[in-house]
């Protein structure tokens, strides 16, 4: 069959090409990235896109220069950043030990499991109006929402990490007569680290959702508010600018955690 020959002839290993061809990747990536921006610019320029709705890359750059130049955007960035950081930090500090405890003590785990999966399935943003009512319109309400959104991802991932400890590794510790404490520190904790990290990665993203939603619903500062406010003012360039900053923050964050995760890759169990 001719189709067979042509297929067999190309792409020797679809599983590894992403790592194999960094220069090709960069070339096509740059083409895709710049291409979209250029098309966008042209489309707006010739009137295919409405300027008020779609803006244009050049207008976004101009808006960025204005707002960064005047410094008007910094309070929004610092507000959002501190809401995110405080909520996420509390989530990590409370969530990781809680996840370890739930995963480690079988009966405790059983006891919490139904409750935990019910809470996990609940979209926490639905609680936003209640949180605002209870905690007011200040930073507290936003921190609470961020915390609620991030902590369960961290707990659930940590618990599943403790559960996925390799049974053979446990047997080795048992075989050499390791104490419970040593079993925990020498086997359970190290094998759970990759899971904790992926929990933190997911939790960090969820926390960002919390920041945005809280600021949409009630705020007078922050990137979420900046996007929302400029939307109602039909100032589309600033809407895109705000979205761009959030996306970039998300990418930087993800990469940072991935760098840490890669350090543990050599002994990372297979998970998806």
């Amino acid at each position: 069959m001719t189709a067979n020959a042509s297929v067999a002839g190309k792409a020797p290993s679809p599983r590894r090409w992403a790592f194999k061809r960094p220069s090709e990747r960069a070339l096509y990536g740059a083409m895709g990235f710049i291409g979209v921006l250029v098309l966008w610019e042209i489309a707006t320029d010739v009137g295919i896109f409405k300027k008020s709705l779609m803006s244009a890359p050049s207008l976004i750059v101009k808006a960025a220069m204005t707002d960064f130049g005047s410094g008007a955007i910094w309070p929004h960035i610092t507000t959002s950043l501190s809401e995110w950081a405080i909520g996420f930090a509390i989530g990590a500090v409370v969530g990781i030990p809680l996840g370890l405890i739930i995963g480690w003590f079988r009966r405790f785990d059983y006891f919490a499991s139904v409750m935990l999966s019910a809470i996990y399935a609940t979209p926490k943003v639905a609680l936003a109006p209640m949180i605002i009512l209870v905690a007011g319109i200040g930073i507290e309400a936003k921190v609470i929402l961020v915390l609620l959104l991030s902590i369960f991802a961290i707990i659930v991932s940590t618990v599943s990490g403790v559960h996925s400890v390799d049974r053979r590794h446990q047997q080795i510790a048992q075989s050499f007569g390791a104490s419970k404490r040593l079993l925990f520190t020498s086997v359970v904790l190290p094998s759970t680290i990759p899971f904790i990290l992926s929990g933190l990665r997911i939790g960090a993203g969820r926390a960002l959702v919390g920041v945005v939603v809280a600021e949409f619903l009630v705020a007078n500062q922050g990137i979420g508010w900046y996007i929302s406010f400029n939307g109602t003012m039909l100032n589309s360039a600033r809407v895109y600018l705000g979205i761009l900053m959030l996306g970039l923050f998300g990418i930087v964050l993800g990469e940072m955690i991935r760098v840490v995760e890669r350090r543990f890759d050599s002994w990372r169990p297979e998970i998806h």
């Binding site: 090709e24 990747r25 070339l27 096509y28 990536g29 083409m31 895709g32 990235f33 291409g35 979209v36 993203g205 960002l208 959702v209 920041v211 945005v212 939603v213 949409f216 979420g224 996007i227 929302s228 400029n230 939307g231 109602t232 809407v239 705000g242 979205i243 959030l246 996306g247 970039l248 998300g250 990418i251 964050l253 993800g254």
Partner: peptide
């Protein structure tokens, strides 16, 4: 390779931010 930059961007973005 071509679409990766934009896909990664939207994947890292809390999509709810696109609401306005």
């Amino acid at each position: 390779f071509t679409f990766d930059p934009w896909l990664n961007f939207f994947n890292a973005l809390p999509r709810i931010a696109l609401l306005p």
